[in-house]
Computed example of a mutant assay.
Amino acid sequence: MVKIGNIELGDFPLLLAPMEDVSDPPFRAVCKENGADLMYTEFISSEGLIRNAHKSVQKLDIYDYERPIGIQIFGDKIESMRQAAEIAEGANPEIVDINYGCPVKKVACKGAGAGILLDLPKMQQMTDEIVKQVSLPVTVKTRLGWDDSTIQIVEVAKRLQDVGIQALSIHGRTRQQMYKGEADWTMIREVKNHPDIHIPIFGNGDIDSPQKALEYKNTYGVDGIMIGRASIGYPWIFNEIKHFMNTGETLAPPSLTERVAVAKKHLSFSLEWKGERQGIFEMRRHYTNYFRGFRDFKPYRTKLVESQNPQEIFDLLDEISVVFDGVNALV
Score class of each variant (00 low, 15 high):
residue 14 L to S: 01
residue 225 I to E: 03
residue 128 D to Y: 13
residue 181 G to S: 01
residue 64 D to Y: 11
residue 226 M to S: 00
residue 260 V to Y: 05
residue 197 I to R: 09
residue 146 W to L: 10
residue 65 Y to C: 08
residue 296 D to N: 15
residue 53 A to G: 10
residue 224 G to R: 02
residue 251 L to M: 15
residue 129 E to T: 14
residue 191 V to P: 06
residue 203 G to R: 05
residue 244 F to I: 08
residue 299 P to C: 09
residue 164 G to A: 07
residue 212 K to G: 06
residue 220 Y to S: 02
residue 243 H to M: 10
residue 165 I to V: 15
residue 163 V to I: 12
residue 19 M to Y: 09
residue 147 D to C: 00
residue 310 P to N: 07
residue 135 S to R: 10
residue 330 L to P: 03
residue 79 E to Q: 15
residue 263 A to P: 03
residue 286 H to A: 04
residue 220 Y to C: 06
residue 23 S to C: 06
residue 306 E to H: 15
residue 89 E to A: 12
residue 217 K to C: 12
residue 270 S to E: 08
residue 18 P to R: 08
residue 93 P to I: 05
residue 76 D to M: 10
residue 227 I to C: 12
residue 103 P to W: 06
residue 217 K to P: 07
residue 252 A to L: 13
residue 5 G to N: 05
residue 323 V to N: 06
residue 295 R to H: 15
residue 53 A to N: 13
residue 38 L to Q: 05
residue 196 D to Q: 14
residue 294 F to C: 05
residue 160 L to P: 01
residue 88 A to Y: 07
residue 266 H to W: 09
residue 29 A to C: 11
residue 185 W to N: 02
residue 88 A to C: 00
residue 10 G to E: 05
residue 86 E to V: 13
residue 127 T to E: 11
residue 253 P to H: 11
residue 53 A to E: 11
residue 318 D to L: 06
residue 177 Q to L: 03
residue 299 P to Y: 01
residue 60 L to E: 03
residue 175 R to H: 09
residue 275 G to V: 07
residue 164 G to V: 02
residue 96 V to F: 06
residue 211 Q to M: 13
residue 124 Q to R: 13
residue 4 I to R: 03
residue 192 K to N: 11
residue 155 E to G: 01
residue 269 F to N: 09
residue 96 V to D: 01
residue 117 L to S: 02
residue 87 I to T: 03
residue 193 N to T: 09
residue 115 G to R: 00
residue 215 E to A: 15
residue 253 P to E: 11
